[in-house]
């Protein structure tokens, strides 16, 4: 009996020792020499592997950073300037700074303002529906509401609002990785420069139809009336195909355009409620501010 145990112990230990020796030599032979800085850089990165930088994952981005001479075209939107400064320190280079950005949805056509005109009965994804036709409302540019963007968001920054049927961006979670921008088949997301207190003013519409047609399909569509364009003191607004666009880099957030819009398609978010100046625009403003409040409340809840 004793010899059995002894035999077993000896054989197994022998096997283990043999395997260890083989493994040691194999590991020596196939050792890959790697720049140790890659590990350091990777350590500094957020490890979200979201692909927002354009690389497959954080490791690939770290390799690219170490290999490249400068940070041309290399930026981690998730980590932002802080992370990039850290990476720069590791590599002994000057950091490049970029303005932090945040995603906004350029459609405000909720269920009430944009009535459904047909029933979609296919597989419930935006991509399949948009490959089939313009959508279940008369606006072929607007949000389809199946939430493909929510699915791809790695940072829990998007959720569907059951009241409007539109996705809502949670500003504090959004890292501007751009996954939703790539995913949306209607190209409704835009990465805009973050301003103080997350304030923003933008045209929440992509409808390129003529005013009458646009207005008929959606009550908050941009009808291309040029009023905002005319009033803007900073030349931040451009008009194309009956559609206004506010350039976030030029916009000084003066809010002059917002009350001008006859269809309330310009949204102002993060501002304190303004004092009423005239009774005429009273209703419009109330609507805008109430809508804005709703979004704010949603945001706060998520925070």
């Amino acid at each position: 009996m004793d010899s059995v145990i002894l035999d077993t112990v000896l054989t197994l230990s022998g096997l283990g020792a043999g395997a260890a020796i083989i493994l040691f030599f194999v590991a020596q032979k196939f050792k890959v020499v790697e720049d140790p800085r890659i590990d350091e850089v990777e350590e500094a990165l957020p490890a979200a592997n979201c692909g927002g930088c354009g690389f497959a994952g954080c490791r690939n981005f770290a390799e690219a950073c170490v290999k490249a001479k400068d940070f041309e075209g290399l930026y981690c939107p998730v980590g932002g300037n802080e992370t990039m400064a850290e990476v720069a320190k590791i590599l002994g280079r000057d950091a490049v700074e970029q303005d932090p950005r945040v995603a906004v949805l350029r459609c405000n056509g909720g269920c009430e303002s944009r009535p459904k005109t047909n029933i979609y009965n296919g597989a419930a994804t935006c991509k399949i529906a948009s490959a089939l036709y313009g959508g279940d409302t008369d606006c072929q540019y607007g949000c389809l509401g199946f939430g493909d963007c929510v699915e791809v968001c790695d940072f829990d920054a998007l959720k569907m609002d059951p009241l409007t049927g539109l996705p809502v961006v949670n500003d504090s979670n959004c890292t501007a990785c751009g996954a939703c921008v790539k995913e949306c088949p209607k190209d409704l997301f835009e990465l805009r420069k973050r301003a103080k207190k997350d304030r923003k003013i933008y045209v929440a519409c992509r409808n390129e139809d003529k005013g009458g047609i646009a207005k008929k399909s959606c009550s908050v569509a941009c009808i291309g009336c040029n009023k905002c364009y005319n009033v803007c003191p900073h030349d931040a607004i451009t008009m194309n195909n009956y559609l206004a666009f506010i350039d976030a880099d030029k916009c000084k957030l003066c809010r002059k355009c917002v009350p001008e819009c006859p269809t309330n398609s310009i949204l102002e978010i993060g501002f304190p409620p303004r004092k009423d100046r005239s009774a005429e625009t009273d209703n419009d403003k109330n609507e805008v501010t109430s809508g804005e409040k709703e979004i704010n409340i949603n945001n706060n809840k998520e925070v």
């Binding site: 029933i119 009965n121 597989a123 036709y133």
Partner: peptide, 8 residues
């Protein structure tokens, strides 16, 4: 009354 749409 609305028309139904789905892929083939």
């Amino acid at each position: 009354k609305q028309i139904i749409i789905s892929p083939s």
